[in-house]
Computed example of a mutant assay.
Amino acid sequence: MPYPRKTLSSLQASVWNDIVSSNVVRGLSLLSRSVLRPLSWAFANLAWSNDDYIAWCFRQSVPWTAEAENLDAWAALRGIYKKDAMAASGLVLFTGCAPGTELAAGTAIMRADGVSYTTSDLAIAGGGGPLFAPVVCDTNGASGNCDGGIAFVLLTAVDGMPSSGVSSGPITGGADIEQEADFRTRMLKAYASRDGGGRQDDYVEWATAVAGVTRAWCNPNGAGIGSVVLYFMLDDAQAAHAGFPQGGNGVASADPRYVTATGDQLTVANAIRVSQPVTALVVVCAPLPFPIDVILSDLAPSTSGQLSAMQSALGDLYVRNGSPLGSVISQSAIEEALLSTGASFTLISPSGPISVPLGYLPVTGAMGGK
C-alpha cells in the first residue's frame, strides 16, 4: 500500500502536541507569542523538506518517474537518447543565371516569411542558367521545413544571377527537440522489449529514434521476400502537411539495390541503415491519406465551433487506431468520438465499418449534414 506522507500542517500540529504532552508547558496550550510556536514551525518545515527530498530521490530511482538528467541516465542504459532539434535542409533554385556563376558556401538566403538559411556548399550555374544552391536553416526546428516553390531571396547581391529564387522541392529534416513525455514513452518501450537483430519492433524503435519521427510501422516482406517496408509519420515536424512525410519513397543512399529515397524518407533510411541487418532491403515509405467523410443529421448545436470539435475528436481517433498496415475503423468508434464533444445527432454515413487499405492512414474528410 502507498506510504501516507504527512502534510506540512499535520507535521506542525504533531510538533505542538508533542510539546504539550511532554509537560514542557505543564500541559497547557501554547501561547500565541510563545517562542516554542515558531520553533515548532521550523522543525516541522525541516521534517517536511526532508520528506520531500526523500520522495524526490524515490522518483528518480525508477525509470518511469525519473526526470531530467536522471531520466537521460536511465534511458542511456537501454541505448535510448533524447532527440535533439535538427535543422532543415534542401535546395534553392535560381534561374536565369549567367553560365558558370558561382554562389559561395556560407551565403545568407532568406525565405519569404523571414526565416534565414545559409548555403552549405559552393553552387555553380549550369549551361542553361539554373543554379541549385544547397541550403541549411540557421535555426533548428520544424519551422525550417517548407514546400517546393516557396520564394527565397539573397541578402547580398551576386553578379551574374538574380536575387530571388524558389525552393526546388520540399526543404525537409527540421525537427524540434523531443519532449520529455515522448522520450519517456520510447524508453519504457525499450525496457519492455528484448534486444533483437531485426525484429519488427526493432525497426519501429530505430525509426522513432530519428529526430521528428513520432510514429512508425514495420511491414515484413512488404516489397518481396527479404524486404522490409517501413512507414513513419512526422506529426509535429510536418504539421503543415498533417504529419505526412515530404519526399520520395526508397532506400538509404548506400543501398544500390533499389531506388534511393529523398526528403524525409531518405533521412530515416540513412539513420537506420547502421542498425538494420546487412541483408535486409529496407524501403522507407510515407503513408498516404485516406479521408473518411461523415454525414450527420439533426446536429445540435450546429455551429462552426461544434463542427471543429468533432473534426478534432475524429482526428484523435484516427491517430490512435489508424495503421498503414491495414486497419478497420468501426462505425461505433466514430459515433463515440463525435458524442464525446457533447453534441446530439444522427449518424447517416458511414453506415458500417471503414476498411483502410495497406499503405494508407485514415484522416478526417468532409463533414456534412442533411
Rank of each mutant, 00 (worst) to 15 (best):
M1L: 14
Y3W: 08
S22F: 06
L31C: 03
L31V: 05
S32Q: 11
S32I: 06
S34V: 12
P38N: 08
P38S: 08
A44T: 06
L46N: 13
N50D: 07
Y53W: 08
W56Y: 08
C57F: 09
R59L: 11
V62Y: 12
T65L: 12
A66F: 14
A75D: 08
A85R: 01
S89E: 15
S89P: 00
L93S: 12
T95K: 10
G100S: 07
T107Q: 14
R111K: 06
S116Q: 10
V135N: 00
C137N: 03
C137K: 00
G149Q: 08
L155C: 08
S164T: 14
V166D: 10
G169A: 05
P170S: 01
E180K: 09
R184M: 11
R184I: 08
A192V: 06
G196I: 03
E205M: 15
W206L: 11
A211N: 01
G212K: 00
V213K: 01
W217L: 05
P220L: 03
N221D: 13
S227T: 15
V229K: 04
L230E: 12
Y231G: 04
D235Y: 01
A239E: 11
G243P: 02
Q246G: 00
N249M: 12
D264I: 00
L266N: 05
T267N: 14
T267F: 06
A271T: 04
S275C: 09
P289I: 02
F290N: 10
F290I: 07
I292F: 00
I295K: 11
D298V: 05
L299G: 11
S302E: 10
S304I: 07
G305N: 10
A313F: 11
L317H: 12
V328Y: 08
L339D: 04
T346F: 05
P350S: 06
G352R: 03
G352D: 14
I354M: 10
I354N: 06
G369L: 10
